[in-house]
């Protein structure tokens, strides 16, 4: 039982980080109608901005994290939108998807060439203690990961539902034409979506790198898992992405512990096909309409 509790917590902790990446993925899908195949690399890169700040610019950790966040928003949000997505509008579709695939190679290879092919240690941000709770060893880091991710998601939801900007973003996602008529600056709203995505990716990066280490290839599995989390949960709903992320995190750990370690990587495929056959709109998705 204590093992079950531990594995469950580890799964929830990892799953909440998947959820952050998955939410960003759904945001981009709604804003630009595209699938961002570089999402995994978006989570990989911010950790390296932080490492550059610490090792080359000599910043203290807190400042480096802030720097990493800003750089992520600038490069993965603003530049990505302005240099790649915008020139392709209004016709996106296949070419944009393929451009994001190429972008994922570009980011990976650049990190490898300019920073290093080896995994890099990443400073511990959260306390490393463990607690003993009824026989189970509970990691404080796991709990805090979960708390921080959930807080970020709640804050995002409040922003989208309670502020004028947030509601304008929702309107833009649901119906750009009507939003324009209503006087909303849709271009700006779409840009905000890209910036938020970059911010979420940076947060996921900072939470996951202390344990997984920073490495150029880290995005490979992370990206796929985030997509599948979004599809499983339903990608017109934020809570769908959260449910999908948590579900995959937990199931992955339970599969590896109790069923098979050799085939644990096959789990996403199985989930994906089941969902498509049984509930194509995802677990929490709705049939019609988009909603940020």
């Amino acid at each position: 039982m204590s093992q079950f509790a531990q594995v469950l917590l580890s799964g929830l902790s990892t799953g909440s980080i998947y959820a952050l990446a998955a939410i960003g993925f759904t945001l981009i899908w709604q804003a630009a109608q595209t699938v961002n195949f570089a999402q995994g690399e978006f989570v990989m890169l911010p950790a390296f901005f932080v490492l550059v700040a610490i090792n080359f610019l000599g910043m203290p950790l807190w400042l480096a994290l802030l720097f990493g966040l800003l750089m992520a928003v600038l490069v993965l949000g603003l530049l990505f939108k302005k240099l790649i997505v915008e020139p392709m509008l209004p016709k996106t579709g296949l070419p944009l998807i393929i451009a994001t695939m190429a972008l994922s190679i570009l980011l990976k290879e650049s990190v490898k060439e300019f920073y290093g092919a080896e995994a890099q240690p990443f400073p511990d941000i959260l306390p490393q203690q463990t607690m003993n709770l009824a026989g189970a060893v509970i990691s404080v880091q796991d709990i805090l990961n979960l708390v921080i991710s959930i807080t970020a998601v709640v804050a995002l939801t409040l922003f989208l539902n309670r502020t004028i900007t947030g509601r304008s973003m929702q309107a833009t996602a649901q119906n750009p034409a009507v939003a324009t008529i209503l006087g909303i600056d849709t271009k700006r709203m779409v840009l905000y979506t890209f910036l938020i995505n970059a911010g979420l990716a940076a947060l996921a990066s900072f939470l996951i790198s202390p344990l997984y280490l920073a490495k150029f290839s880290n995005g490979e599995t992370l990206g796929v898992v985030a997509f599948i989390a979004a599809i499983v949960g339903g990608f017109n709903q934020i809570r769908g992405a959260i449910a999908g992320g948590l579900l995959i995190g937990v199931l992955d750990n339970l599969t590896a512990t109790y069923i098979t370690a050799e085939y644990r990587a096959a789990l996403p495929l199985v989930l994906l096909i089941l969902i498509i056959l049984w509930r194509p709109q995802g677990l929490l998705g709705t049939d019609e309409g988009r909603q940020v």
């Binding site: 531990q6 580890s10 996951i208 992955d252 750990n253 370690a261």
Partner: peptide
């Protein structure tokens, strides 16, 4: 797996 990041289940 080669490149595996999450060793929670393995250690457990």
């Amino acid at each position: 797996e080669q490149g595996q990041a999450d060793f929670a289940a393995d250690v457990s």
